[in-house]
């Protein structure tokens, strides 16, 4: 198996190598920070026309995960669209793709900081989603057993190459990687991120396989990673 199965609260969850989270018992697939329509928003705001294929790419990834897991519920954990205008200007192919993915299953859009408010597309808009003792919301709060996104965590295993998007968890909190094609990342060791956790942090790296690694086990990663904001 190229996934990583772990306990979270009372539940057993599976981190997929794509960056999606699968909750087998509830047949729920959760993805965060799709940022659909990002290229469109950049063109609108800056005049720079990036390759306009990121929505297609992101939906193709999602389609593959849906085909693999056949979920009853798909939960998009906020920042699904780069902004509301981007949601309105999806092209027909992408809209049709999204509609076909939604067919026959419950589809939840959690609100994000980029896309608050209801959407014209199918699916149900929710502020957060509570289920089986777990809370799903876009930005981490103080709630126990909470699953969120927003920060786009990434991590590199010391001495093995470049950083990859990753899940972060200390057993009480779980932060998902950004799922969208045009998304960057924040170092997991950045205090902004690591400061959200109280227990020992595990990172589950995405890629060909989901690889689980303790975040603080090795000094060099912490030293290198602490750099951007470190003040002593």
């Amino acid at each position: 198996m190229n996934t990583h199965v772990f306990r979270f609260g009372e539940q057993v969850l599976t981190a997929l190598p794509s960056g999606a989270l699968w909750w087998g018992d509830r047949r729920l697939l959760c993805v965060s920070d799709l940022h659909l329509g990002k290229a469109d928003r950049i063109a609108r705001r800056t005049g720079r026309m990036l390759p306009p294929y990121e929505t297609r790419e992101t939906l193709a990834r999602l389609a593959a995960d849906i085909a693999l897991t056949d979920p009853a519920t798909v939960l998009c954990l906020g920042d699904s669209f780069d902004d509301l205008m981007a949601a309105d200007s999806l092209d027909v192919t992408d809209t049709a793709m999204l509609t076909s993915l939604q067919a026959g299953r419950r589809w939840l859009w959690a609100e994000g900081n980029h896309d608050p408010g209801p959407l014209a597309l199918g699916g149900t808009h929710v502020a957060q989603h509570d289920c089986g003792g777990l809370t799903f919301r876009h930005i981490a709060s103080a709630t126990p057993h909470e699953i969120s996104g927003h920060y786009h965590p990434k991590h590199a295993i010391p001495g093995t190459g470049t950083a990859r998007p990753c899940f972060l968890t200390d057993g009480n909190r779980l932060i998902l990687p950004a799922y969208g094609a045009y998304t960057g990342g924040l170092r997991a060791t950045d205090p902004v991120l690591s400061g959200l956790f109280t227990g020992r942090i595990l990172a589950i790296l995405t890629g060909r396989r989901a690889i689980c690694v303790p975040l603080t086990a090795s000094a060099p990663s912490v030293r290198a990673g602490r750099w951007p904001g470190s003040r002593r």
Binding site: P51, Y53, R56, T183, G184, L186, R187
Partner: peptide, 22 residues
């Protein structure tokens, strides 16, 4: 806000996949 920027490698990979003659 470093998560706002993303690598040009992603653009390259996307173009290669969807618009190889660009």
């Amino acid at each position: 806000g470093r998560q706002a920027t993303f690598s040009s490698d992603i653009l390259y990979d996307t173009l290669t996949k969807y618009d190889p003659d660009h």
